[in-house]
């Protein structure tokens, strides 16, 4: 098909250079997590799993990992639930000032996490709410709910409204319409927004940093690990986080997009 292969050479070289740039830090990170020595820098003195063992035995890190999962799941469930309900309300009913309501619900998307976190910190301080994982979770709902709302709202078109109308016409009550028709019909959108929220919450640093103290999330714990300088243990925990994220992405790809493509 391609008649003159050498003419493609610049493209190939360019693509390889960019892939190299993109993958360089990840490869170094993962490679030196197996370093059989005290520093994650060349030369590679041999392969070992000792730093993974160190991570496994580090109670604080493992606790932070559990905290991160709890905050991610809890805040994502809340964000999806609130996002879904508000999208349904705004898409299906006559309400005053709909444009204003939509703007308000999506406004947090345009404000940086630092400012959202700071506002919550000052407010919680003033009201007397102590720093905690719950406080961080509240912040994560604030940043993720607009996204869930936007994704789910975009999937509630006239066609979907007609399908709900048909269910009502056939005798379904409002709660039956939501549980038997709307939610199952929007399952891919609900799933996608849940997973997106999960990954954002899982990776979020600044809000958790500002709003937690004794029990912290994994990114905050890794941050304090950074103070010890270059350390293969940081490489190991970074590789673990990368691995978990990639698995999440693959699950999302398989469950949502494969399904979406079929119908």
């Amino acid at each position: 098909m391609i008649r003159k292969p050498w003419r493609q050479l610049p493209s190939v070289l360019y693509a390889l250079a960019i892939y190299g740039f993109i993958f360089l830090p990840v490869v170094v990170l993962v490679l030196f997590s197996f370093q059989d020595g005290r520093f994650p820098i060349p030369p590679l003195k041999g392969l070992s799993l000792r730093w993974y063992e160190a991570v496994w035995n580090d109670g604080r890190l493992m606790e932070a990992l559990a905290n991160s999962i709890a905050v991610a799941v809890g805040s994502s469930l809340t964000a999806v639930l609130l996002g879904f309900l508000s999208a349904y309300g705004l898409a299906r009913f006559k309400l005053p000032a709909k444009g204003l309501q939509r703007a308000l619900l999506t406004a947090p998307l345009t404000v940086s996490y630092l400012i959202i976190g700071m506002g919550l910190l000052i407010t919680f301080n003033a009201v007397g709410i102590p720093k905690s994982l719950v406080a961080a979770g509240i912040g994560h709902v604030v940043i993720n709910m607009p996204l869930c709302f936007a994704i789910i709202y975009s999937q509630m078109g006239d066609h979907q409204a007609n399908i709900e109308r048909a269910a009502r016409d056939l005798g379904a009550r409002e709660w039956q319409v939501i549980t038997l028709v709307t939610a199952p019909m929007l399952w891919p959108a609900l799933f996608a927004s849940f997973f997106l929220s999960m990954t954002f919450s899982w990776d979020e640093f600044i809000i958790s940093f500002l709003l937690t103290r004794f029990d912290v999330t994994l990114p905050v714990e890794i941050w304090s690990l950074l103070r010890s300088g270059l350390n293969p243990k940081t490489n190991a925990v970074g590789s673990v986080v990368f691995g978990i994220s990639v698995v999440l992405v693959i699950v999302l790809e398989l469950v949502v997009f494969r399904k979406g493509r079929r119908s």
Partner: peptide
Amino acid sequence: LPFWTSYVVRSYSWLLVLANNG
């Protein structure tokens, strides 16, 4: 794909790459 390395870890990885003895 490297998008999904943790945000904190990504910066640390560049430190590994760019350090004096990196």
